[in-house]
């Protein structure tokens, strides 16, 4: 087996092996059923390509990813500020907190995960307890008013910190691109072991 580099889509089998395969294919009826050797129709190839692109595009985590408590950490600090505590209406208070963080590094995520004062009050002791422990809040996920350990990315260093965190836009995507590429390379490799598609077995009505 070797790739023919000036014609990479040709079969990887040797001519002798191809000839043997073709003879075998033609000679036996596989117990009553035969197979042709057509290549994938071009529109179907485009459809498959579109499917792969769509798969990545539609699952891109612009929407629907669960928040980590890290994005609310600054909100919790603001809750204790006098200008917030002086506001008696909860809706007004959360509006003020949100306004104070406009343009911050977490703005996009905060917009996707709005929160009420009541929820903040419930979350506050739980998040503060985690902060006291010194853990990384990005390892946790907010589910309603609960905070649960949920993310397990990257190896831990001896000091308890992570070697790396994936950015929010790359949750599982690099590994998936690798996985999909390996799949298509594998399938092309498998198919290229067959006789070339330019050769068609002549299966008549006698099979």
């Amino acid at each position: 087996m070797a790739w023919v580099m000036d014609n990479p889509l040709a079969t990887t089998n040797s001519p002798a092996q191809n000839e043997a395969d073709q003879k075998l294919w033609e000679a036996e009826d596989l117990g009553g059923i035969t197979e042709d050797n057509n290549r994938l129709p071009i529109p179907v190839v485009w459809l498959l390509l579109l499917t792969v692109l769509t798969a990545f595009a539609i699952t891109f985590p612009l929407w629907g990813q669960r928040p980590t408590p890290a994005i609310y950490a600054d909100y919790l600090k603001d809750m204790d500020k006098p200008e917030i505590q002086s506001i008696t209406n909860d809706d007004e208070a959360i509006k003020k907190i949100v306004a104070m963080h406009q343009g911050g590094p977490n703005q996009a995520q905060l917009e996707r995960h709005p929160i009420t004062m009541n929820e903040l009050r419930s979350l506050k002791p739980k998040i503060e307890e985690l902060q006291k422990k010194g853990v990384d809040l990005r390892d946790y996920t907010v589910v309603g008013t609960e905070v649960v350990f949920a993310n397990f990315e990257g190896n831990m260093r001896a000091n308890g910190t992570r070697e790396r965190f994936q950015p929010w836009w790359d949750m599982g995507y690099t590994i998936d691109i690798f996985y999909v590429c390996i799949f298509f390379l594998g399938v092309v490799g498998v198919v290229k072991r067959l006789p070339p598609s330019s050769w068609q077995p002549t299966h008549g009505a006698g099979h």
Binding site: T59, A150, N151, F152, G172, Y173, D176, V180
Partner: peptide
């Protein structure tokens, strides 16, 4: 983990 959900979703 969000990465697992993204991977599964793709």
């Amino acid at each position: 983990p969000e990465w697992l959900k993204s991977f599964a979703s793709v």
